[in-house]
């Protein structure tokens, strides 16, 4: 598959995402945020980092980058889109995914390994997992507390759109322990933890690799 990793000014997990996608056997290219052309990518990744210094709110300014029009069209056309950490924040700010990522309940920046439970395997990104399987992945964020109104949360649960939940240790106070969600079309996934940092043995964990393998496609 052709994978495009978008680079915003302040992205810092772009190379990691590129590497994880490359290791999974994909043709990977970086796309600068000023570009309006995704180069015919099948999959777009919005990586982690601090686009625009997280000024105003994390993702609030990045969502208006020129590339985002193409990203929105890509998602609307049903093509695959993954937002990791800051990328998830950008997707929520852009309204491509519902809800928002608010400041961590404990106020501190959290940087540690967490355990996730796979709640939905009917997305291209999670088809390589078993439902209920637990994974380990690092989190590294100051604004990762998933919030949405009760009606939105109920809808996400009802439609099976909670993709990952923190198992046991909820590092940021996310409502209903939500760590990752998908859109109505199930082609877009946003998650706070970093699977690209747990995608090869050298990193101490390979649990995240299946996400980039795109077994469902």
């Amino acid at each position: 598959m052709k994978v495009a990793v978008v680079r915003f000014p302040g992205s810092n997990c772009d190379a990691d995402a590129w590497h994880a996608a490359k290791d999974a056997g994909h043709a990977v290219a970086f796309v600068w945020h000023r570009s309006t052309d995704l180069g015919g990518a099948d999959v777009v990744v919005l990586p982690g980092g601090f686009a625009y210094g997280d000024y105003l709110r994390a993702g609030a300014i990045a969502r208006f980058s020129p590339v985002m029009k193409a990203v929105e069209a890509h998602a609307k056309a049903g093509r695959l889109l993954l937002g990791i950490c800051n990328g998830f924040q950008v997707l929520c700010e852009a309204g491509i995914l519902p809800g928002a990522l608010a400041r961590n309940a404990g106020l501190s920046f959290v940087c540690r390994w967490v355990t996730l439970r796979v709640e939905a395997t009917d997305t291209a990104f999670t088809a390589g997992y078993r439902k209920g399987q637990t994974l380990r992945a690092p989190v590294a964020h100051g604004e990762g507390r998933y919030v949405a109104d009760e009606a939105t949360l109920d809808r996400l649960e009802r439609e099976g759109r909670v993709v990952f939940r923190y198992a046991g240790d909820n590092p940021n106070g996310a409502l209903r322990d939500i760590a990752g969600i998908t859109n109505e079309g199930r082609n877009v996934v946003g998650m706070m933890p970093h699977p690209e940092r747990a995608a090869e043995a050298l990193l101490g964990c390979t649990d995240g690799a299946a996400l980039f393998a795109l077994a469902g496609t």
């Binding site: 105003l56 609030a60 300014i61 700010e93 809800g99 928002a100 919030v147 109104d149």
Partner: peptide, 8 residues
Amino acid sequence: RLLANPVT
């Protein structure tokens, strides 16, 4: 449009 996030 930008300055406030209606969700939060």
